[in-house]
Amino acid sequence: MQTLSAFDSRLADVAGVSIRSAGELYGSDGEGLPLVVIENALGSAVLALQGAHLVSFRPAGAEDLLWLSPKAVFTPGKAIRGGIPLCLPWFGGHPEGKPAHGFARAQPWTLDAVRTLPDGKTELDLSLTPNAAVSALWPHDFLFELRVTVGRELTLALTAHHRGDTPVPFSSAFHTYFSVPDVVLATIDGLQGTTYIDTVGGAHTRHTQLGALQVAGPTDRVYLDVPAVQSIATARGAIRIDSDTRSAVVWNPWEYANNVPDVGSDGYRRFVCVERGDVFDNALQLAPGERYHRSMTLSLA
């Protein structure tokens, strides 16, 4: 892991941006992981360099839109529970038993640039390239890039450049954990009329979404060919999700959270995952030299 001082030259001239340790911010054991703290007049965010993983986003004057588990562990090589993990270059389980949701969320990304934009937003560029551990899992040359823009809105723009010489299957998702006062009272709009695959219990049955969605039990649904915009309405207000990806995944483990140590027995009531991506039927095959580019913007509705 790079030391915090290794990033000083990239941040020296950018007001409101600093590197802190996870131990300092979240009380994790040991030094933990390096986190980038972004603060401007429009909003604030915290980003882990491992996984290019947003763990917090607050529009100015508002509560955090993202849920981070109180039991989250900030350990090198272990995915962080909450925020926005990046799932790529595959989503879900792997037929060969490789790590679920790909390798990108547990790898250290490089912080390439940080800048303040004329409108007061803060922009960060990060990248991931092959290393020995990654090549053992995915033996293809690639460049993954993420641009993060923090203002009153949060925008994540992901680019995957396939630099190998054979076609490769590819899927990705912004695996967003949204903070809600009580998941049973949250209403998800923008999925009406779409087809979803219900994967709870491994069933993989297909249904049509009728009306708005309220989570009332274990939920793991993959929605296909969805509209660009969804919203989550809660007692705190509404959150808008806008993306050019084609899939949406709604997940909450309900009582099965007891089997997930870093969620806890009642943690499931405080979040709902509404993930945008290109998965299952909407997954792709990248040709040699092809670039995949998708983005997602979160805002208060």
Rank of each mutant, 00 (worst) to 15 (best):
Thr219Asn: 08
Ala133Tyr: 02
Asp262Leu: 05
Val180Tyr: 03
Gly23Phe: 07
Leu185Met: 08
Thr219Phe: 02
Thr159Trp: 02
Ala238Met: 06
Pro34Asp: 05
Asn40Phe: 04
Asp112Arg: 14
Ser44His: 07
Thr129Cys: 08
Ser9Phe: 14
Ala248Thr: 11
Glu63Ile: 03
Gly217Asp: 05
Pro89Val: 14
Ile84Gln: 03
Glu123Asp: 03
Ser69Met: 02
Asp29His: 13
Lys78Arg: 12
Asp189Ile: 00
Leu300Phe: 11
Ala133Arg: 13
Leu137Phe: 03
Gln214Gly: 08
Arg206Val: 14
Ala238Val: 07
Gln50Gly: 12
Ala106His: 03
Ala173Ile: 01
Asp281Ala: 10
Arg240Cys: 04
Pro169Ile: 00
Pro169Gly: 11
Glu24Val: 15
Asp262Glu: 07
Leu146Thr: 08
Gly27Leu: 07
Ala22Ser: 15
Pro70His: 02
Ile239Tyr: 01
Leu65His: 09
Thr176Pro: 00
Leu54Gln: 01
Cys87Trp: 10
Ala212Gln: 13
Tyr196Arg: 14
Val17Leu: 06
Pro253Gly: 14
Glu123Ala: 10
Cys87His: 09
Glu153Gln: 10
Val215Arg: 14
Pro181Lys: 02
Ala104Pro: 11
Arg163His: 08
Gln107Lys: 09
Val184Ile: 09
Asp165Cys: 12
Gly27Trp: 00
Val36Tyr: 12
Pro99Lys: 09
Asp262His: 06
Asp13Met: 05
Ala216Gln: 12
Ser247Gly: 13
Gly277Phe: 15
Cys273Asn: 07
Ala257Gly: 03
Gly97Glu: 02
Val46Gln: 05
Leu286His: 06
Pro95Asn: 00
Val184Phe: 09
Thr129Asn: 03
Val222Gly: 01
Val134His: 03
Gly237Gln: 03
His207Asn: 10
Asp278Gln: 15
Trp138Tyr: 06
Asp262Pro: 00
Ala133Pro: 10
Pro130Thr: 04
Thr234Ile: 09
Val134Ala: 13
Ala173Val: 07
Arg152Phe: 01
Gly267Ala: 05
Leu117Phe: 02
Asp112Gly: 14
Pro169His: 08
Pro253Cys: 13
Phe178Leu: 12
Val73Cys: 01
Pro89Lys: 13
Met1Cys: 15
Glu31Val: 15
Val226Ser: 05
Val215Ala: 14
Gln107Ile: 09
Ser171Pro: 04
Gly30Asn: 03
Gly211Ser: 11
Asp8Ile: 05
Leu128Ala: 15
Leu298Met: 06
Leu117Val: 01
His293Cys: 08
Lys71His: 07
Ile232Tyr: 00
Leu298Cys: 02
Lys121Thr: 11
Phe271Val: 03
Tyr268Asp: 01
Pro253Asn: 11
Thr176Ser: 09
Gly202Asp: 07
Gly193Trp: 00
Asp13Lys: 15
Gly211Pro: 14
His101Arg: 10
Ala104Asp: 04
Ala132Leu: 13
Ile197Phe: 05
Ala301Asn: 10
Leu191Tyr: 05
His204Val: 06
Arg294Pro: 07
Leu25Gly: 09
Lys121Arg: 14
Gly264Ser: 07
Asp112His: 13
